[in-house]
Nucleic acid binder design. Structure first.
Length: 498
RNA sequence: CGGGACGUAGCGCAGCCCGGUAGCGCACCUGAAUGGGGUUCAGGGGGUCGCGGGUUCAAAUCCCGCCGUCCCGACCA
């Protein structure tokens, strides 16, 4: 029976392991609607903590929140040709506004209520937002216009997976309008940097940043930047994107402004987004065979305190001590597990599967010795799982220990990524052996041709994740394309992805 | 839309081949003892066996049809 409670091992079946960790960690649950997800309170709190951090950064960089409609007139989508082509195949469409009794006793849409123009449920909001921007912008003095929206969107994907690809998901989409190409370019780079900083410093999830190849560019964008993280099965996860839209949308939505010299010009737009998918990335970056591992800065509960007692009179004393320990940790998100009907061991397992960074145990023996038992969710090889420390030391050192653990998780993830990255690969055979074997990030030269990219995708299911930014590039300039051998125009990162 | 599997209690499953009182584990409820790594014992509640039809004295079990779910592909800004 103990076996039943164990998780599927990470290395045995990664998908099953991931699902179990998410479900049993109580982040989310399946919903009656296929492909949709219920985010449970614990998972939602985690999302709120992420959201608050990002939102603060958006405000610090001059953005304001606003809200736009869920429904978009179908015709809006079709104004930008590439945009509609990219999204047309995964859309939910509203065509009627009433139901009536059908011939079989069930309900059918009332034909008389058919909408003249169908509404699509937003898969992203560029069209409706730039329609509004066009009304708001008259002069260069109205620019830049820096808006962000927290919302839900719907994309009717064929196959879904908790947090990583759900039919409906929560996200944030920033939309901006600028007077010049350069300003828009700076904006899209700036917001990519905001994402990267958040992912590394708060999620402990290192990312490779760079530009997308044309085939992976957002439909309607001039070019797209992205943050790519490596999961524990060595596949890539696109965790955030930032698009420079050029004047593609402003031309279609008539978003014009008067310049200083009185001339009329189309604005330059950017859009950028991150979603609840980041929660999945967090899970697949740190968690282990015992369950979730949540970095301290984002953990809904940072320290759980478990009182331990045999008899009722002991319980009162021990519980009071547990509460006083919690009170002595201001600014730390603590939780005292005062449930009387569970054994301590059962509680330990439960808080481990929920990824709480630190656990403090308080028993009669500890009170006597003025000590506490401290356990970190994950320790380095060879380190003790539990420490018996004087109470004062635990209280004084906890804030620093939380920060240490945060840093340690990032470092561990970075080391894992680097040991599964292959630089300077020149032979296609070697390339295939890596992708089809252990997997990982493979850095090679690329001629820039889409046919080489397509061939790799067909043969290995790997794609170009990014044309990496300078700091991620290997030292030598790539000599030739790993596929066709022609002169390379850039170094690229290949991987199988989610 | 192709290939494969599965549908029995909230969850995980056995039973089906060979038709005959619907079972097990976990979870849940009650009581007692327990409590420093998944406590133990005793008692209890919970089911149109995915749906429809057929064969039969009798169907979870055999036959036919349908529906649904999952996995692998295709798809995935």
């Amino acid at each position: 029976m103990a076996d039943e409670k164990k998780l599927t091992g990470r290395d045995e079946d990664y998908s099953a392991w991931y699902n179990e960790v998410v479900l049993r960690g109580e982040l989310a649950d399946y919903s009656p609607v296929r492909g949709c997800m219920v985010i449970r309170p614990y998972g939602y709190r985690l999302w709120e903590l992420m959201r608050d951090q990002l939102d603060r950064r958006f405000r610090e960089t001059g953005h304001q929140n606003a809200y736009f409609p869920l429904f978009i007139p179908q015709s809006f989508l079709s104004r930008e040709a590439e945009h509609v082509e990219g999204f047309a195949k995964e859309m939910a469409i509203v065509t009627h506004t009433r139901l009536k009794a059908g011939p079989d006793g069930g309900l059918v849409p009332d034909p008389e209520s058919r909408l003249e123009e169908p509404l699509v449920v937003r898969p992203t909001s560029e069209t409706i937002i730039y329609e509004m921007f066009a009304k708001w912008v008259q002069s260069y003095r109205d620019l830049p216009l820096l808006i962000n929206q927290w919302a839900n969107v719907v994309r009717w994907e064929m196959r879904t997976r908790l947090f990583l690809r759900t039919t409906e998901f929560l996200w944030q989409e920033g939309h901006t309008a600028h007077a010049t190409h350069q300003e828009a370019e700076e904006e899209s780079r700036r917001m990519l940097g905001v994402y990267r900083e958040f992912m590394e410093e708060w999620m402990g999830m290192p990312v490779v940043t760079g530009r997308k190849s044309p085939s992976e560019t957002f439909p309607g964008a001039d070019h797209t930047y992205a943050c790519e993280a490596m999961m524990q099965d060595n596949r890539a996860l696109q965790a955030g994107t930032s698009h420079h839209l050029g004047q593609n949308f402003s031309r279609q939505f008539n978003l014009k402004f008067a310049t200083e010299s009185g001339a009329e010009e189309y604005a330059y737009n950017t859009s950028w987004g991150t979603s609840t998918r980041m929660v999945g990335g967090l899970v697949m970056t740190h968690s282990d065979d015992a369950g979730l591992v949540i970095p301290p800065r984002l953990a809904p509960i940072q320290v759980v305190i478990v009182p331990i007692a045999r008899k009722d009179d002991e319980w009162q004393t021990v519980l009071e001590k547990a509460l006083s320990v919690a009170a002595a940790l201001p600014g730390v998100r603590t939780h005292v597990d005062d449930r009387r009907n569970l054994t301590p061991g059962a509680k330990f397992y439960e808080w481990e599967i929920r990824g709480v960074p630190f656990r403090i145990e308080v028993g009669p023996k500890d009170i006597e010795k003025q000590q506490l038992v401290l356990a970190r969710r994950v320790v380095a090889d060879g380190e003790a799982r539990k420490e018996f420390l004087p109470e004062a030391e635990v209280l004084n050192s906890l804030p620093a220990r939380l920060e240490d653990f945060q840093e340690w998780l990032l470092m561990r993830a970075r080391e894992r990524r680097e040991s599964n990255s292959y630089r300077g690969v020149t032979s296609y055979d070697e390339f295939r052996q890596i992708i089809e074997g252990p997997g990982g990030f493979v850095y090679t030269g690329w001629c820039g041709g889409s046919s080489c990219e397509e061939r790799v995708k067909e043969e290995t299911r790997a794609t170009i994740r990014v044309i990496p930014d300078e700091e991620f590039r290997s030292v030598e300039t790539p000599k030739g394309c790993v596929v066709c051998g022609q002169p390379a125009t850039a170094e690229v990162v290949w991987a199988r992805s989610y």
